[in-house]
């Protein structure tokens, strides 16, 4: 009997200890799980924020890209339209110059172009070339420029003259076409400003 009760007490004690150990382990596990969960929560939040930030960055990049390209496209279309209009203005101006009257003012213009050419080239011993339409105007001015002769060959141009030294080493292009070409960048700007550019 006495042995049985001692055994029972011992078993009881062991069971109590085991229970305490299990409860304590469970508490520890709960605590550790809660800590892990809390840590994971922070990591999760960090990851969440990181993903959001990266997404925002990517969205901003895409926005910049789409807006940038659209702006550029519309600007380029505008440039092409302005250029088209400028070319039309030039075409009309050239047509007007081609059909211009060869009156006394024109003769004065040719005379000044001749003088300018002689000054630039540095000799009056020159051969003058012009288009077939202006040959008579130039011919009538030759007496004022000794040493200058008119070439029998006509050149293709809107008007004006092209001169060459008689030894053939120097040439000077003083045609209306060449002058227009040289001033084209400035004229383009003036025309564009009329379109509000």
């Amino acid at each position: 009997m006495g042995v049985d009760s001692a055994l029972e007490r011992t078993v009881e004690k062991i069971l109590q200890n085991t229970e305490q150990q299990i409860v304590s382990s469970l508490k520890e596990a709960l605590k550790s799980s809660q800590a892990t969960l809390a840590n994971s929560q922070a990591t999760l939040e960090q990851e969440h924020d990181k993903i959001l930030a990266e997404g925002k960055k990517e969205a901003e990049k895409l926005e910049k890209q789409i807006i940038g390209n659209a702006d550029l496209d519309s600007r380029n279309k505008q440039l092409l339209l302005v250029e088209e209009s400028i070319e039309k203005v030039f075409e009309k101006a050239i047509a007007k110059l081609q059909s211009a009257e060869r009156g006394s003012d024109y003769s004065k213009l040719i005379s000044s172009l001749l003088q300018e050419s002689i000054d630039t080239i540095g000799t009056s011993e020159i051969i003058i070339q012009t288009n077939s339409k202006d040959k008579s105007v130039v011919q009538s001015l030759l007496s004022k420029f000794s040493g200058a002769t008119l070439s029998s060959d006509a050149i293709e141009c809107l008007g004006g003259i092209r001169v060459q030294s008689k030894d053939g080493t120097m040439k000077f292009d003083n045609t209306i076409d060449a002058r227009l070409d040289r001033l084209k960048p400035l004229i383009r700007k003036d025309i564009a400003s009329k379109f509000g550019r």
Binding site: T120, F172, N174
Partner: peptide, 27 residues
């Protein structure tokens, strides 16, 4: 920028590598 252009010289003395030597030039 002026409408007046420059003189064109046709007396080329030498062409050497990327260089062209023009003869009889003034100003």
């Amino acid at each position: 920028m002026s409408a007046q252009g420059g003189v064109q010289y046709s007396k080329i003395a030498e062409i050497k590598g990327p260089l062209v030597i023009v003869d009889g030039v003034e100003s």
